[in-house]
Amino acid sequence: MSQATTVLRESQLSVANGVAHFSHQRPSARNALSMELRADYQDMLAQVESDRGIRALVISGSGGSFCAGGDLKSLQALRNAEDPEARSPDAMRRRLQAGHVWMERLRSLEVPVIAAVDGPAVGAGFSIALAADFVLASTRAVFCMSFAKVGLVPDLGAFYFLPRVVGMARAKELALTARRVGAQEARDLGIVLAIHAPEDLEAQALRMAGRLAAGPREALGLTKNLFNRSFETPYATLAEMESQAQAVASAAPFHAQAIDAFLGGRPAAYDWDRQDA
């Protein structure tokens, strides 16, 4: 299996067999979302978006931590900056707006995204996990909307993602209490799809990504993005988007090959239920 690995500022990106694996690599800081890691996300997304050979993405942490959220040291530095503009409310607003640009790109990737959460996914780290299509967790995973603990409101898309996953009342409860949620409760709430032992988590995430990568790229990407828009789009508009998406999917080579295989009595190339899949 050939693998290409790019070492970024505080992360690394590996690509093999159609699966990209983006791993946070600052375990000494519990992979906090520093300005450097934010820049890494932009670089990673540019590569994944431009490489049609990439058909699934796995995001993970290192050293027993997914992402501890915003870098509080950098926030303190902003508060102590000599330049009034650097510590102004508008500077914070622009900082968050810049984060939303790449978070929207992450959410809208036209390939399945899997977050492999081992250890804490806290604050903005929790938001990143929620932006994935599927969250796989280790038995020691912990999720926390920790913002209230430091006198802040949830950010990096939490107001959008969390109520859509757990419902409005539970989203408010998790944000207002800033309490910790273990892997089993997160699964019960619908945040986590499956739980694995820490030593198996990454392999299981890559295995799932590999199976998804065998699917129809166009159809899966269109399906994902239509579901992403389902809660805020009127029926008539979504029906028109569905019709356009089906036109694209039906013209893709995968569809023609699948029909030929079915009519010729050959096994489907993409069959999740098949034993040897």
Rank of each mutant, 00 (worst) to 15 (best):
A251C: 09
F262R: 08
A261K: 12
R211E: 00
R211I: 00
G265V: 12
G221Y: 10
T237F: 08
R229I: 01
R229N: 15
R229G: 15
T233C: 06
A252V: 12
T237V: 11
L220R: 04
N225R: 12
A214Q: 14
P216T: 05
P253M: 15
T237S: 08
I259V: 09
A252Q: 11
G221D: 13
L238S: 00
L220M: 03
A247T: 01
S230Y: 07
S243N: 09
P234R: 13
Q244Y: 06
L226H: 01
P267V: 12
S250P: 01
Q246F: 05
F231Q: 08
F254M: 14
R266F: 14
A251P: 03
A236L: 12
H255G: 05
F262Y: 08
P216E: 08
A258V: 14
V248W: 06
F262I: 07
V248M: 13
S243C: 11
S243M: 13
H255N: 04
E240N: 08
A261G: 13
P253E: 14
V248H: 07
L263D: 10
V248P: 07
M241S: 12
A261N: 14
L263S: 12
D260K: 10
I259E: 03
A247W: 02
K224C: 10
R229L: 10
R266W: 10
S243P: 00
S250H: 04
T237C: 06
A269C: 05
L222K: 05
L238V: 02
R229Q: 15
A251E: 06
F231K: 05
A269N: 04
F227T: 02
E232I: 00
Q246N: 10
S230G: 05
G265Y: 11
S243Q: 14
L220K: 00
A236F: 08
V248C: 11
N228I: 03
A213P: 06
A213C: 11
A261R: 15
V248S: 13
A219E: 12
N225T: 09
A269Q: 03
P216G: 12
P267Y: 10
Q257F: 04
A269G: 04
A247F: 00
A213S: 09
P216V: 07
